[in-house]
């Protein structure tokens, strides 16, 4: 008899139904006169709007970018040493230009 979370958020789900697109399913009793049957089971789902349009694409983007960036991590120490060398050269050039 205590208020449930589903019940508590119902007004908000209904007011913002364009965002949440709630889907509800009411199973009706299956015995007795057709016209007198009332509800037996209830299920309600909310379309995960923010997940679909915001969080999922963002995480997919980050994952795909990091997949591509993974290419520079080969494991060879010589490549890493050459990264450091290239970075130092670029820094010296940059300092020279900005003077």
């Amino acid at each position: 008899m205590q208020y449930t979370a589903t019940g508590y958020s119902k007004p908000l789900r209904r007011i913002f139904s364009f965002l949440y697109q709630p889907a509800r399913r009411v199973e009706v009793e299956d015995d007795g006169l057709e016209v007198l049957r009332t509800a037996k089971r209830f299920e309600s789902k909310v379309h995960p709007f923010f997940e679909e349009t915001f969080y999922k694409p963002l995480s997919r983007l980050i994952l795909s970018v990091s997949q591509k960036v993974k290419a520079i991590q080969t494991g060879h120490i010589q490549l890493y040493l050459s990264y450091i060398f290239v970075t130092l050269v670029l820094l010296l050039i940059f300092l020279r230009i900005s003077r």
């Binding site: 589903t6 037996k40 089971r41």
Partner: peptide, 11 residues
């Protein structure tokens, strides 16, 4: 009563 998650009774 009606079964289901989130369904409650008001007396």
């Amino acid at each position: 009563k009606v079964e289901g998650e989130g369904v409650f009774e008001i007396p």
